[in-house]
Amino acid sequence: MKIGLGTVQFGMDYGVSNQTGKTNQAEVNLILNKALELGIRKLDTAYLYGDSESVLGQNQKELNGFDVITKTRKFGNTAFTKDDAKLIRESFLESLSRLKLNKVYGLMFHDSSDLLKENSGYLWDELVSLKSEDKVTKVGVSVYSLNQTEEILKKYPIEIIQFPLNIYDHSFLQNGFLSKLKEIDIEIHVRSVFLQGLALMSSTELPAYFKSVKNHIQECQEMLRSRGVTMLEASLNFIKSIKQVDFAILGINNISQLLEIIDSYHSGKNFEGIDYSKFAIFDESITNPSKWKLK
């Protein structure tokens, strides 16, 4: 099963369709235990996810059963110095302390643009040093655009990568890009599988900001409804159908969501003949949540 747990909701209020806010500590413990029971082993967090790392650190027994991936701090700099490399080390060691771990599976640059700035090698070399000290198994980057990713790959030997991919956003499927990543043995994690919950919202519930694609989304939903397939089932099947994807990082707010996702992931429904290319939306103001203007 190629599902990993996203934990931003454990540390802060997150997601356009999230009506319940930050997940409480007791619910986090239930989610982690159930995830382990179901065979889920990848867990994604970040230095900047509120107090997510600290919350996870309070569940030590469960946390030891996961491959934990965390991310670096972000920098506003246009160029880097050796002092910035010290900062990236210090913030990572703080992450380990919060998590109460001696080592993580993955450490990724949270802001991919940091790897394209002047003297970014200082930061990269620090991550490589942390790996050589056996504090990290794989080093990599969380990215947003295909062009930016290609530039980063020219500079650094990325081992693990995370990017958005969902039933509406197919930008990373262009030009056989995923196959190219696999040729150089990069582990692929995808996020935003439900587009912060947008992919699971009924067309009638969409905020006004999305009016330009309301008809498109309605047509997609009606097509699936006619086949007896839910948007959740289709969203998960879309990811399952892409063989190069190693793990889909899914944000979970509560235990019932986790169980619903697992049931839908293992749905025995017939998806044959669904042309997912017809779902694609080629408008970054819709597919990139950082560009949304909801208020």
Rank of each mutant, 00 (worst) to 15 (best):
residue 78 T to Y: 08
residue 141 V to N: 07
residue 142 S to H: 05
residue 172 F to R: 11
residue 119 N to T: 02
residue 205 E to V: 00
residue 114 D to Q: 14
residue 120 S to E: 02
residue 102 N to G: 07
residue 75 F to Y: 15
residue 120 S to M: 06
residue 91 S to E: 08
residue 88 I to P: 07
residue 191 R to I: 05
residue 150 E to Q: 15
residue 70 T to H: 06
residue 166 N to F: 07
residue 78 T to F: 12
residue 169 D to H: 00
residue 90 E to Y: 06
residue 171 S to A: 14
residue 107 L to W: 00
residue 196 Q to K: 15
residue 201 M to C: 13
residue 158 I to A: 01
residue 86 K to L: 12
residue 121 G to W: 00
residue 106 G to R: 13
residue 207 P to D: 05
residue 204 T to L: 14
residue 84 D to K: 12
residue 196 Q to W: 04
residue 190 V to R: 14
residue 131 K to V: 05
residue 206 L to H: 05
residue 111 D to C: 11
residue 158 I to T: 00
residue 100 K to C: 01
residue 156 Y to E: 10
residue 175 N to S: 10
residue 124 W to F: 14
residue 103 K to V: 01
residue 129 S to A: 11
residue 208 A to V: 04
residue 88 I to R: 07
residue 113 S to C: 08
residue 187 E to C: 09
residue 174 Q to V: 12
residue 121 G to T: 07
residue 108 M to R: 08
residue 115 L to P: 13
residue 183 E to L: 10
residue 191 R to Y: 04
residue 85 A to C: 12
residue 160 I to W: 01
residue 162 Q to L: 13
residue 126 E to I: 02
residue 207 P to K: 12
residue 116 L to I: 09
residue 96 L to A: 02
residue 175 N to C: 04
residue 139 V to T: 06
residue 87 L to Y: 01
residue 194 F to G: 09
residue 80 F to Q: 03
residue 101 L to V: 02
residue 99 L to E: 02
residue 95 S to T: 01
residue 114 D to N: 15
residue 167 I to G: 08
residue 189 H to L: 15
residue 196 Q to A: 10
residue 103 K to M: 05
residue 143 V to K: 09
residue 193 V to W: 00
residue 89 R to T: 03
residue 74 K to I: 15
residue 161 I to Q: 06
residue 106 G to D: 08
residue 169 D to K: 11
residue 166 N to R: 11
residue 165 L to C: 14
residue 140 G to I: 02
residue 127 L to A: 03
residue 111 D to G: 08
residue 152 I to C: 07
residue 155 K to F: 04
residue 168 Y to I: 11
residue 87 L to A: 13
residue 94 E to N: 14
residue 99 L to T: 00
residue 206 L to R: 12
residue 155 K to P: 09
residue 193 V to M: 11
residue 159 E to V: 02
residue 192 S to C: 07
residue 213 V to C: 07
residue 162 Q to D: 03
residue 171 S to L: 13
residue 170 H to M: 08
residue 159 E to C: 07
residue 159 E to W: 00
residue 75 F to A: 15
residue 146 L to D: 02
residue 153 L to G: 04
residue 154 K to Q: 15
residue 79 A to G: 02
residue 172 F to A: 13
residue 87 L to V: 04
residue 88 I to G: 03
residue 184 I to N: 12
residue 79 A to E: 11
residue 76 G to F: 14
